[in-house]
Amino acid sequence: MDNLDVNKNGINDNTSKEKNDNHHNDNHYDKKKINVYLDLFLSFFKIGLFTFGGGYAMINLLQNEFVLKKKWLNEDEFLNIIAIGESTPGPIAINSSTFIGYKVGKFWGSLFSTLGVVLPSFIIILCISLFFNKFLEIEIVASAFKGIQACVIFLILQAGIRLFIKLKKTPFNVIVLFCTISLMLCFSLFAITFSSVFLILISGVIGLFIYLIKLIIDKNKKNKENSEVNKNV
């Protein structure tokens, strides 16, 4: 593990020198391909092993590993990945591991990452099915899980706050954020089943509309200016 860490640091140093280049990863990773795959696999294996309480809790672990520690992604790229993961089908864990794996190590990177994230839960569930059906009835296990539940609240909150801090505080963002939070709280308090994907799609389309309207206004302005220039001439 130590050797691996040294290699990673070496890579990171190189990349930080060439920060002007937006897609700085690709070339440097060629030499250390195998190490990168192993690194991806182990990182995601670790994350898969310690993700309790589903995808949103995993966001904190992903953030910690790839944004804060390894610096393979910045907060904005990370938020992009989560946004894409939320607007496409499938578990967010699989979406984000495939994505991050691809960004770091192309196809094989994504394969090893996804394998890494899936394997721990696959093995654990298989063991539970095989050996102890009454797993949750073991009192000491249930107690530990209750403690972890409380921790999951904090982890999700922390991930959310980190992303909130990096989010540009435009009027649009603030209004949408406020509406989302209040709507989701109402839905869950009154036990209304509502798929959050609708909120995601609606807001995405609104974002697209605002962009188009701005585009049209800008064009009109330019046309007016042009015609005024022509008149003056």
Binding site: E86, I153, L157, F172, V176
Partner: peptide, 27 residues
């Protein structure tokens, strides 16, 4: 990009609201 920018605040809102609902449910 415009679409993704529209999605981003929702995602942040969903994460924050999930933690709040979990807080209410569990505590």
């Amino acid at each position: 990009n415009a679409f993704l920018d529209g999605v981003k605040p929702v995602v942040v809102g969903l994460i924050l609201s999930t933690s709040l609902t979990l807080f209410v449910k569990i505590i």
